[in-house]
């Protein structure tokens, strides 16, 4: 079984990018499907994470430190967004008593 794995210390860029995009797609799917508000926010974090993976991959090939720096910025953004989003979720829980996304229909029509 071992000889199926390549004997190099590098992997095709495609695989890493594929991984990142797969995580992103999983997060997207989850965002569309789940009902709980907090789980939705978690799926958003998943998507961000997927994007980060792709960025790190591209930091290596072609070699450039810039994408990695953007990843660091992404951390900050994600943290801020998660903070505010969760604060809102708590508020919604306090007001509506539920975290079902379908209960948030104020913009209907």
């Amino acid at each position: 079984m071992i000889h199926f794995l390549p004997l190099t210390d590098s992997v095709p860029l495609a695989h890493i990018v594929g991984l990142g995009v797969a995580v992103f797609a999983a997060g997207a799917f989850g965002f569309l499907v789940r009902r709980n508000l907090i789980v939705l926010l978690m799926c958003v974090e998943l998507m961000l994470n997927g994007a980060n993976i792709v960025l790190v991959a591209f930091s290596r090939a072609p070699a450039s430190p810039d994408p990695q720096v953007w990843v660091i910025f992404m951390f900050a953004v994600a943290a801020a967004e998660a903070g505010v989003g969760l604060a809102l979720a708590v508020l919604i829980w306090r007001r509506l008593g539920t975290l079902d996304i379908d209960a948030l229909k104020g913009l209907r029509g």
Partner: peptide, 17 residues
């Protein structure tokens, strides 16, 4: 066109994607 405004965030997200 108004039928598109369901108020449901996930519906909007599908359309978005």
């Amino acid at each position: 066109l108004g039928a598109a405004q369901t108020g449901n965030a996930q519906f909007y997200a599908i359309v978005f994607m």
